[in-house]
């Protein structure tokens, strides 16, 4: 019988169950990488009343930005610890948004969607990130800007994000309709539905 030794043992307490560390930055996407120029870029939040809050690229950059260092965990089992991002907190973007609904659907350029509970993207838990490791975010990794929700599996951190639409229930997004978990907490291994 062949005995598996395993060479990437790691008792780092920041590594969720079933995950291994990677130094590179793998890419998971369902289709081609869309190319969106900053000039055409726009981000919006739409509420049940039909109100639309919009930001152009320049307006986004003019908002107070935060530098955050977080661990990210992909459902395909790699994790990267201590990654550095710069972006705008969703608390800032939601400051003037009036909604009674509890869920959001994130929409991306290219058609990707992912669902999230509103309370999980507020209180310093989510950002619209436009820099990674001190550099503008690569298109492959979601540039010009992506959602960053590091406490959930990384498919929730929608690349090429273009808006959030409030929804009255936790309707599934793209991967969630294709077999992935509605919520996606890496510490509870909520990988697949």
């Amino acid at each position: 019988m062949a005995i598996f030794g395993g060479r990437r043992r790691n008792d780092n307490p920041n590594l969720p169950p079933g995950q291994h560390l990677t130094e590179s930055f793998p890419v998971l996407s369902a289709g081609p990488t869309p190319s969106i120029s900053a000039d055409d870029w726009e981000f919006s939040i739409r509420t049940e009343g039909g109100d639309i809050h919009r930001w152009s690229w320049q307006e986004l950059l003019a908002l107070p930005a935060e530098d955050v260092t977080v661990d990210i965990h992909c459902v395909t089992s790699w994790s990267k610890l201590g990654t550095g991002w710069r972006g705008v907190s969703l608390d800032t973007l939601f400051a003037d948004v009036d909604t009674g609904l509890d869920y959001v659907m994130a929409h991306s350029y290219g058609g990707y969607t992912t669902n999230l509970p509103l309370e999980e993207v507020l209180e310093g838990r989510a950002w619209i990130a436009y820099e990674y490791d001190g550099e503008p975010l690569d298109p492959e990794h979601g540039g010009p800007a992506r959602l960053l929700v590091p406490h959930l599996y990384f498919w929730k951190s929608a690349k090429w994000v273009r808006g959030l639409v409030m929804q009255d229930d936790d309707y599934p997004g793209f991967w969630e309709e294709n077999g992935y978990h509605l919520h996606g907490d890496p510490w509870r291994e909520e990988r697949y539905a």
Binding site: S24, V27, S29, G31, P32, T33, G111, E140
Partner: peptide
């Protein structure tokens, strides 16, 4: 590999394919 998929998918779009007609799987690497 990721780099191969990126290059090919971009090439297909340049040829006029609709992005939503292209499905990709990236195995990793660069």
């Amino acid at each position: 590999p990721t780099g191969f998929v990126e290059t090919v998918a971009r090439g297909l779009i340049d040829l006029g394919h609709q992005p939503d007609s292209i499905r990709t799987e990236r195995f990793g690497g660069i």
